[in-house]
């Protein structure tokens, strides 16, 4: 196997992995704050992708379409909590809450199919180029640079918000000790709502960056959602570095699996995730999770 080929695999893997990392971070945020595993996260990505396709189709420039997409999916994330999970959380069990998120994913898929049809929808690259950039015999498309850059910015913003702002401190404290967070004057319900919104925004970033690369359909989100969860699992379900490591590890795994069979890429990588779960339940970053999170 020559070096260029290997590098090509890595570039492909990291690009896909970046998308998974964004979705995974959303899962982690929501899970850490509310204890809910939101299976509708992938559908939020799909809606993000569909929205940017529609906005750009209507002639909006990126500078308007991107923030509008992120804002709308942020609100959709909030709505999921405000109207379904929030009212259910007090009496809910792990199982009932998870089924609610599954139900929401089905509703979103159905409505997307009704609103946007069943055929794949496309949108051009953000900066269309005649040919991909070539470095050391490795070709990198302009959109994959957008994807990697976009995800880095999104996770960077998430990091700064979590570490440096009052809302970030409130989010983290709610995930560590919800009762004490309330006793510190934090409205934990509002913080949960924000966590869902932020997860929506992260998914939207993933969706809008991915839209030019694939034909987006109502069903696109469900598989990517599962991959996002898988990435979160690999990363130990705890931190931003974990989500990044998990996402990229999964992306690379798929890249490698595609060597064996393109069709079996999903099956092979998901089986590998199950192996990780069986052998290293805390993810490949190991004990980090145990140290930082109480009750996760």
């Amino acid at each position: 196997m020559d070096l260029a080929f290997l590098l090509q695999l890595i570039v492909t893997g990291v690009t896909t992995g970046a998308i998974y990392a964004a979705v995974a971070m959303g899962f982690v945020l929501v899970f850490r704050v509310t204890g809910i595993l939101n299976f509708a996260q992938g559908e939020l990505l799909m809606v993000g992708g569909m929205l940017i396709i529609s906005f750009r189709g209507a002639g909006w420039p990126l500078i308007a379409a991107v923030p509008a997409t992120i804002a709308l999916v942020f609100l959709l994330g909030c709505a999921i909590y405000a109207f379904a999970l929030g009212p259910a959380i007090k009496r809910g069990t792990n199982i009932s809450l998870l089924l609610i998120t599954l139900g929401l994913s089905q509703i979103m898929q159905g409505l997307a199919q009704i609103g946007w049809g069943s055929d794949p929808r496309y949108t051009p690259d953000f900066t269309p180029a005649d040919r991909p950039l070539t470095l050391f015999n490795v070709s990198v498309t302009s959109q994959s640079i957008w994807i990697m850059g976009g995800v880095i910015v999104a996770l960077g913003v998430t990091y700064v918000v979590l570490e440096r702002t009052g809302i970030g401190r409130a989010l983290r404290s709610s995930s560590i000790d919800p009762m004490m967070a309330r006793l510190s004057g934090i409205n934990v319900r509002l913080i949960s709502l924000i966590a869902f919104g932020a997860a929506g925004a992260l998914a939207a970033v993933g969706g809008l960056l991915l839209a030019p690369v694939i034909g987006m359909t109502y069903a696109t989100g469900s598989l990517i959602g599962v991959k996002g969860i898988a990435a979160a699992v690999i990363g130990g379900f705890g931190s931003i570095p974990g989500a990044i490591v998990g996402g990229i590890a999964l992306g690379l795994l798929e890249s490698i699996a595609s060597l064996i069979s393109t069709g079996l890429q999903t099956g092979i990588s998901l089986l590998a995730v199950v192996l990780v779960l069986l052998i290293l339940p805390d993810g490949i970053l190991g004990g980090r999770r145990v140290k930082t999170a109480v009750g996760v």
Partner: peptide, 28 residues
């Protein structure tokens, strides 16, 4: 303000951030 039984620090966060959470909602 209530200091509940047991030591409810936000482990995993800095001492400083813990203190700032005590003033959550006040102006910067």
């Amino acid at each position: 303000s209530l200091v509940p039984e047991g030591r409810h620090v936000f482990a995993g966060m800095k001492v400083e951030d813990n203190l700032l959470l005590g003033a959550y909602g006040l102006s910067k």
